[in-house]
């Protein structure tokens, strides 16, 4: 294709990208530099205020850290699920993939509310725990970080499983057989062959789960409550509760940059594996 026609083809896309992404971003940055709600002189005061306060920084850190924990839990369960799907007989494969994708078909709100029913003081899990006599008092699962991590991991599971599954099912199954024929057991084969070769999928899955987990306002607030403050709730409170839009914009920008850094690191890590596949 000639460069001229390529340009003509990509032009609408570029325009769409500019209108839908770059423009709002510019407005966001501009807003974050406004002195007061009604504009005024540009200032980096909001950024300084955020950075200068350890409380704010700890919210950012906790949010990023929450993402790491949720992503790791998701990976821990997601990889085996993807592995089982990929190695399953064709007949079962479609059933398994359907089960994996099922959560996407229901709203995240519905899924989160179901978890409230499961994790609540009188919820399913506590009834089992009490019924088996494992504890005298109901466990505090709801409104705890552990609860948030569990629910995030489940709710975002398809985002982890699907990219891994895609990569795994493209791997030549002879490689697994070759590994076994050379004496390696299932675990070594998994660790030395399947995991490195599915790294691009793992990285993609991690980026998706991570980004989804740290911005999961609904899950974070419904399962975590107000005592566990993460960035989305923080931004929401500043914007809507306190009507402090410039500060909300500033912390949005900071949050975005922090997330981009994490994603870039993950991406760079993934690039190292890409060339082999």
């Amino acid at each position: 294709m000639s460069t001229a026609s390529t340009t003509r083809l990509t032009l609408p896309l570029t325009a769409l990208f500019a209108v839908c992404f770059v423009a709002p971003l510019c407005v966001l940055v501009a807003l974050s530099l406004a002195a007061g709600p009604d504009g005024g002189v540009a200032t980096i005061g909001h950024y300084a205020a955020f950075v200068g306060d350890r409380f704010n920084a700890s919210i950012l850190f906790d949010t990023l850290w929450l993402g790491v924990k949720a992503t790791l839990v998701c990976l821990l369960f997601g990889f085996p699920v993807a592995w089982i799907c990929a190695r399953a007989h064709v007949r079962w494969q479609s059933v398994l993939i359907f089960l994996v994708v099922l959560p996407i078909l229901t709203s995240v709100v519905v899924r989160t509310f179901s978890w409230i029913v499961i994790l609540g003081r009188h919820g399913l899990l506590n009834q089992i725990v009490l019924g088996l006599g494992l504890a005298d008092e109901p466990l505090r699962l709801l409104y705890s970080e552990a609860g948030v991590i569990i629910v995030l991991a489940q709710v975002q599971m398809p985002l982890m499983v699907l990219p891994i599954l895609t990569v795994l099912s493209r791997i030549d199954s002879n490689l697994f057989d070759a590994s076994q024929a050379l004496g390696a057991g299932q675990w070594r084969t998994l660790w030395r062959v399947a995991v490195p070769l599915s790294m691009p999928g793992i990285i993609a899955g991690c980026i998706l789960t991570y980004a989804a987990s740290i911005t999961a306002f609904v899950t974070q607030t419904l399962i975590g409550g107000a005592r566990l403050i993460y960035m989305p709730l923080f931004i929401y409170q500043q914007a809507v509760g306190a009507n402090n839009w410039p500060f909300a914009a500033a912390i949005s920008v900071i949050f975005m940059v922090a997330v981009l850094v994490v994603v870039a690191v993950l991406n760079g890590f993934g690039r190292r594996f890409e060339k082999h596949v």
Partner: peptide, 16 residues
């Protein structure tokens, strides 16, 4: 992995 059989596959199946 316990049989001690060596296999050469048609597509060689080298670990990429």
């Amino acid at each position: 992995n316990k049989r001690g059989v060596g296999i050469v596959f048609q597509n060689y199946a080298l670990f990429p």
